[in-house]
Design a protein around this nucleic acid. Structure first.
Lengths: 189, 189
DNA sequence: ACAGAACTGACAGTGACTATCAGTTCCTGC
DNA sequence: GCAGGAACTGATAGTCACTGTCAGTTCTGT
């Protein structure tokens, strides 16, 4: 399954997202096209799959403290960035390990961008109830704030991408989401 | 062109979005499938097209005052809601005029939802520079805040939909986006 | 009346995605 | 060991959204 992702990524980098067919990916990964769809559902899913499981884990309920969600989000991003590089041979170099290679397609390929938006939307839908139950927000407000955080993160990630991915993502999240912190005046300063 | 939209909407209401093909829509609207694609680009576009031209107009630069964008957004929504009913015969009843009929698909049909998200994303991208130039936000912050507003509006609209569309949309926007107002403390209270 | 632009329909083709069926592997109870 | 079922995989056929192109038509401006 990781095999499919890596082979697909190789082909995408080589010839572009649109120019690669599922059939070719299947051949390169030595599986059937059926299996590709079983695993990822869509072509975009190969790139987007579980990218935001970062937000899926129930364990993150603690992390995304409703009293200060921005700080929680920052913690999650920092944890993600500092996580031990995936079980990839060190020699394969940064290109494989770094999020850049995949994230690049999030913002350069329109259909992938849409898939990411949909994923963030789903993550936000799951998070909103937590915000409503633990905070002092109405359901509507919780949904709005949840979207503000989730898509605010997306905006920060895009800035990171547009800057070439040199500085840590967390820097952009911290700076970009600073205005949103005013929403919780009790934790200001 | 409005003909295509209305005929398509009739078919969607009758048999469901997925069960209707572009071919059938073309036949019903007495045009060729080519024309449908020329006008709307995608099947979802028939429902989503210019739904957010509300935000496209440059005239809204004045409306979406960077000093108080939430209030500006509210004004825009109120203006949209109170606009004279489209040139539809009065007899055809509310169902055609009201936004409900189309918005319904925004939240019930996943692919349409994705298209709406993409549209909001584009609108936000256009608005962010205004926020950066007129306000005291960095580019990254402007982008984040722009997304917070745009997708916050989306969340409020969904709540309106989930409630059955009985109260005005502006009510949900006003209530839902209240927390975001704290971002501009100067205009608070 | 005429040249060119703008619009439309017809056609052929691509490829993502679905549904279904049959074969294989793996896990369980006896 | 071995029947039986669940889980996984591959193969096939089919649908349909979407693209590109070309020819015919209508609508300009001069």
């Amino acid at each position: 399954m990781r095999m499919i992702q890596e082979r697909a990524l190789d082909l995408f980098d080589e010839r572009g997202f649109d120019a690669v067919t599922i059939e070719e990916i299947a051949v390169a990964a030595e599986v059937s096209p059926s299996s590709v769809y079983r695993y990822f559902g869509t072509k975009e899913g190969i790139l987007v799959a579980d990218e935001f499981d970062l937000m899926n884990q129930e364990e993150l309920v603690d992390l995304l403290d409703p009293a200060d969600p921005v700080e929680g989000l920052l913690k999650a991003v920092r944890a993600y960035e500092s996580q031990p590089p995936a079980d990839v041979p060190q020699g394969e170099a940064e290109a494989v390990r770094s999020p850049w290679r995949r994230v690049h397609y999030f913002f350069s390929e329109p259909s992938v961008r849409m898939a990411v938006l949909a994923n963030i939307d789903r993550a936000s839908q799951r998070y909103a109830p937590l915000l409503a139950s633990h905070g002092d927000l109405s359901e509507t407000q919780a949904r709005v704030v949840s979207n503000a955080l989730a898509f605010g993160y997306f905006a920060a990630l895009e800035r990171w991408y547009l800057d070439g991915g040199v500085r840590p993502i967390a820097d952009y999240v911290e700076e970009g989401l600073a205005p949103l912190r005013r929403m919780w005046p009790s934790t200001d300063g």
